[in-house]
Design a binder for these strands. Structure first.
Lengths: 191, 191
DNA sequence: TCCCTCCTACCGAACGGTCGTTAGCATCGA
DNA sequence: TCGATGCTAACGACCGTTCGGTAGGAGGGA
């Protein structure tokens, strides 16, 4: 049941991703559903609520991807799996990922606080993953964990701007991991 | 002369960065200047034009930063200088950088085409920089230049979200460069 | 010095249109 | 019969933009 409501939230996510939250009117949304804009309010309480349900499904998807990272494994392997998971979410739910990383600032009130906290928690989990790698000796002891976290999260958060839906993201994640783990320096110039 | 107009574009950039283009009304802009909204139109032709001048100064700033990268120098050093330049622009002109990377899609018509081309050219210049590093032997011959470019541009483009204005970005750029060049792998686990 | 013209900046009011939202009523399948 | 879904019409607020008018100063010619 509530199939029509799902249709609405899906269409809303798509338009929010394409034109932005403020750039999408309830009227445009209604037209996409083939319906009068007043009719939308028998399916949803407000435009804000529409944004919120998108954000919630984004938060759920990204955290679920991190849940699949094995507790006991070499750090490089854990990074690889985490990056694979993140990029897979982005490519399989590109609109959700786009809205989640770009439009969260237009949430208001308690919903906003909640989503901001979820985003922060996601970053903290990544930071912990890298810190544990240093502590276990898998990663270099002089690694700047803060900078490394920033770097990998940048790659993850920027992916929605260039990732084509349906692309093989596992291989891509592995390439990123390879660069992160071993660096770009030429063999000949290694000190 | 035209001092008042500069004041307007500066305030517009600030508000576009804070609330987004569609989230900023001409009325809010006028209030920030202490003026009636109709009065803005003796200083600027349209809201679109206001967005465009911000985008232009962003494009100019980022390209100028890349111009300062030495032609003949080890690739790692060139990456370091380029990254320093980019992050310096972001921190010194945070609002401009924010609008440039986040609000460009709301430009319309020919202005949009122009700015999109500038953004693409900037990315191409980065890609060339890394490719030349491989060709000169400074960077590993098996480096995936596309993935490496994506990685470094992600870090650059995401910086506006976390960089605090006035922070020492040179040191930060060097830390990023160090990770990119040598990787995160622990010495003990090096193959 | 005076006058006239031009320019910049702003005013207050209004334009037609769109915004998100609400109310009351109709339809229809379960 | 009842809940889900949709309609039409309207609400007040706000949108970006245009308008005619005006204050004040700069510049130039007589």
């Amino acid at each position: 049941m509530a199939a029509r409501r799902d249709e609405l939230t899906r269409e809303a996510t798509r338009l929010f991703a394409e034109r932005g939250f403020h750039g999408t009117s309830m009227d445009a949304l209604a037209q996409a559903l083939g319906v009068q804009k007043g009719s939308l309010y028998s399916l949803i309480g407000s435009k804000q609520e529409l944004l919120y349900v998108t954000m919630r499904s984004g938060a759920t998807a990204f955290h679920a991807a991190l849940d699949a990272v094995p507790e006991r494994a070499p750090a490089a392997e854990r990074v690889r799996v985490a990056l694979r998971g993140h990029l897979r979410v982005v490519s399989e739910q590109l609109d959700v990922a786009t809205v989640f990383t770009r439009e969260w600032r237009y949430l208001e009130g308690a919903h906003r606080d909640e989503i901001v906290a979820e985003r922060r928690r996601y970053e903290d989990r990544w930071r912990a993953l890298l810190r544990e790698g240093v502590e276990s000796g898998d990663l270099r002891t002089d690694l700047d964990v803060g900078a490394a976290t920033l770097l990998v999260l940048s790659a993850a958060n920027w992916a929605y701007t260039w990732l084509e839906p349906g692309r093989d993201t596992d291989e891509l994640a592995d390439r990123f991991t390879a660069i992160l783990v071993d660096g770009i320096r030429g063999y000949a110039t290694r000190a």
